[in-house]
Amino acid sequence: MNAIELRNLTKIYPQFTVNNVSLDVKRGYITGLIGPNGVGKSTLIKMMLGMVRPDSGSVKILGYDMPKQEIDIKQRIGIVSDDCFYYEDVSIRDMKRIIAPFYKKWNEQKFNRYLERFELSPKKKIGQLSKGMKIKFALAVALSHEAELLIMDEPTSGLDPVFRRELLDLLAEMMQDERNTIIFSTHITTDLDRIADYISFVNRGELVFSEPKDEVLDRYAIVKGDRQLLDSDIRKKFAGVRETAFGFEGLVEDRHAAEQLFGNYAVFEKASLEDIIYYNAKGGRVHA
């Protein structure tokens, strides 16, 4: 079953378009939404949350239609974003007093436990919290109303390595309940290397692929070799290729096809998620 179903989502801005995106996010797994900055990841997430109205297409979350059943959806989801939009002049305790009554399944004990675990003082004002502390607070809120789906927009950007690791452990802990789902948008791919089950790659407003992470990493490969191996037809086989005076390095989508094409004349390496973003974003030929 899918936790999120996006169908033919289109949003046209004067200088940017999210074009006909259809995406399924599997229930019970962590899906990483990756792509360079400004390609539409946050717009997609905003459309999921009903913050941006799509020009066409539909959004279904946990079986409910957005925006028709938005209240049912928001009872069941938690949102953690790198931008904290809480009221700056109120304390953590008062912010909790604002938020808690909206949720049917608010768990006060759980919330207090998370505050203790994250070393957040209830008396501290939101405006005095650092970015990392605000994310901790957002996470405490999201986890305290028994959210089945956690939607995270760049949650690790601006966090120190210690809390980033702690956050990933916490997410892994949450995933012990098979009903829970996480969608995690980021451009810090090392976080996803650790925890993601599925990867959805967005580039220039379009979905490039959405597949299990292991399949993606097996399918893509980095090919290195002498420039003499390249001609115009072969260059087209690469998602992106970087050429230097000494040779080339490129990303291919089909490792087996590339192995057959180059045989022993080239070296094949496992591509990382960062390689996949880099070469796809650059496209064509890159001169170093």
């Binding site: 949350l49 009903g50 913050m51 938005e70 209240i71 049912d72 928001k74 009872q75 949102i79 931008d83 939009f85 809480y86 009221y87 700056e88 938020i99 909206f102 949720y103």
Partner: peptide, 18 residues
Amino acid sequence: LNDTKNHNHHFLVTLPVS
């Protein structure tokens, strides 16, 4: 004005309320 000071509408629309 209190709702716009820190883009608080962005927070409000994430709550279970229309």
